[in-house]
Design a protein around this nucleic acid. Sequence first.
DNA 1: CATTATTGACATTATACATGTCATTACGAC
DNA 2: GTCGTAATGACATGTATAATGTCAATAATG
Lengths: 149, 149
Amino acid sequence: MKTDLLYRLIWMSRPLMQAAEASVEKGLAGTGLTVRMRAVLEILHAHGDATVPDIARKLDINRQYVQLMVNETLGAGLTVQRPNPRHRRSILLALTEEGRGVIDQVIERERALVAAIGADIDAADAETALTVVLALVGKLKHHAGKVEG
Amino acid sequence: MKTDLLYRLIWMSRPLMQAAEASVEKGLAGTGLTVRMRAVLEILHAHGDATVPDIARKLDINRQYVQLMVNETLGAGLTVQRPNPRHRRSILLALTEEGRGVIDQVIERERALVAAIGADIDAADAETALTVVLALVGKLKHHAGKVEG
DNA sequence: CATTATTGACATTATACATGTCATTACGAC
DNA sequence: GTCGTAATGACATGTATAATGTCAATAATG
């Protein structure tokens, strides 16, 4: 295995992430959304109503910060609080009509962009890439748990 | 092209980056280095003496922040300032003996880790992954420069 | 020589989180 | 039931990684 190849692949993750986030940000122009508000709406869009801690676990960040993000979506009228039958204090968050409309539109726009970008990328290659990246993440996380001599 | 595949690949960049940076941080234990000091030393290691703006351009962050990072390496005795024959005020930064020793060791340790991780990853697959990722970054950057309808 | 760009140095602001605390509420073991 | 423990909301504070602003000194260019 050419180690250098893997090394370069690993460290392309930062430029890729930055480019992806920049694209998302561009796509949000005119919607009034911020990137972090979009993240909340996307979770609700994908998984339905959720509590703040639910969303935090899905985003893999702490609940306190998610609370901020959620408060912004509430303030913008994109989400509403609903009573949670399973817990009196733990409120469920749900998309409003407006929130659903906005996130639907944003996601569709992003889907179209990815489709355009992927037009001349071979599907098998993309699958290979995803497999490799998933393996890398798994191995890196595993090794990080160990001591390095 | 299955858009969903690409979408997932793109957004694995964040976990990959986080896992990679966590590994680097682990690997720095005992060296007294911080991640950002390591970044400075790595540039000097790879490209030789450089000015602060040089390093900033290579790291793709602004020179003011790099100045902070560089000052830390100076303070730790890992780098020294050298007169720049091409500019009286623009000082060249160079590794000290100690700095070179530390960064050599860190890089070798990381190389070994990547080699271990890559042991059962097919080289051709890794190459494919790198190609795909490079293409994605290029296309995303390109599209970000345009208006999205 | 005049203009413009680059650099060092330092201060301020922004973003994206993590951490700490405390009262309230729910849940499981007994 | 009740008792201990965990989850939650709410709010305050801290931290890492930057970007941005400013200004004087110097260099490069026409």
